[in-house]
């Protein structure tokens, strides 16, 4: 790893951290001033979210060659969610290197690229919470329950949300509304989200594309085991 690479990453991360610290839906800090290890907490402000009011602590590990490689994200208090492993790690395509697990069914367009940012990752993770991908689960129990017993699933999520509130630091003012709106998407380029011409799939609905596509394909593929 060259010294240069490290410096580049540090400079970019410093700017990104500053940018992210302006947002009220996330509480982020570099651990002991180390820009490659962040303590983050996602604050769910959306009143229609099942996770409304949650304070979700997580750790973000950023590689020295960022943004060439994606960061690693882990919830410190694992959530009961089809795409979250029991160790708090996530199954979400944006955190995957474009090249790995060819067979997962993930489109290259949903994977990490050097044009992605910590900001886009955090937004994707927030939208994954309420938009679970049950067909390929990191937590099969959660996946089954979401399909078969949505009410029971909601109850567990509510418990998760209540537990997460214990992590709200003393003196931290929980924002109550989405008053500081997330800034407009950085990429104004019209064909940014379009599939490239040589893609055979990708005729999915546009609905999940509000913040870019979130797609998850880890763990065991769901088998119709009814």
């Amino acid at each position: 790893m060259s010294v240069d690479e490290r410096k580049i990453a540090e400079r970019m991360l410093m700017l990104e951290l500053k940018e992210i610290q302006k947002e009220n839906w996330v509480n982020a800090e570099a651990q002991n001033g180390n820009l490659f290890l962040w303590d983050v907490a996602l604050v769910v402000l959306n009143p229609t979210s099942l996770y409304h009011g949650a304070y979700l602590k997580a750790e973000l590990k950023i590689p020295k060659d960022y943004p060439m490689s994606p960061p690693e994200f882990r919830f410190l208090r694992p959530l009961f969610h089809p795409n979250i492993y029991k160790d708090g790690k996530l199954c979400i395509s944006i955190l995957h290197q474009p090249g790995e697990d060819e067979m997962s069914g993930e489109l290259a367009s949903e994977r990490w690229s050097a044009a992605q940012r910590i900001f886009t990752v955090l937004i994707s993770i927030l939208s994954l919470l309420d938009d679970a991908e049950v067909s390929s689960a990191a937590n099969v129990d959660a996946s089954v329950m979401l399909r078969k017993d949505p009410e029971g699933y909601k109850r567990i999520v509510k418990e998760n949300v209540e537990t997460s509130k214990r992590d709200i630091p003393a003196g931290f003012q929980m924002p109550t509304s989405m008053d500081n709106k997330p800034p407009p998407k950085e990429e104004e380029d019209d064909d940014f989200w379009c599939d490239s011409g040589d893609s055979d799939f990708g005729a999915d609905s546009d609905e999940d594309m509000i913040f870019g596509r979130v797609f998850s394909a880890c763990g065991s593929r769901w088998q119709a085991a009814d």
Binding site: A108, S113, D189, F192
Partner: peptide, 9 residues
């Protein structure tokens, strides 16, 4: 991992 693709599109 880039597989020679543009990071944007």
């Amino acid at each position: 991992s880039s597989r020679g693709l543009c990071p944007m599109c």
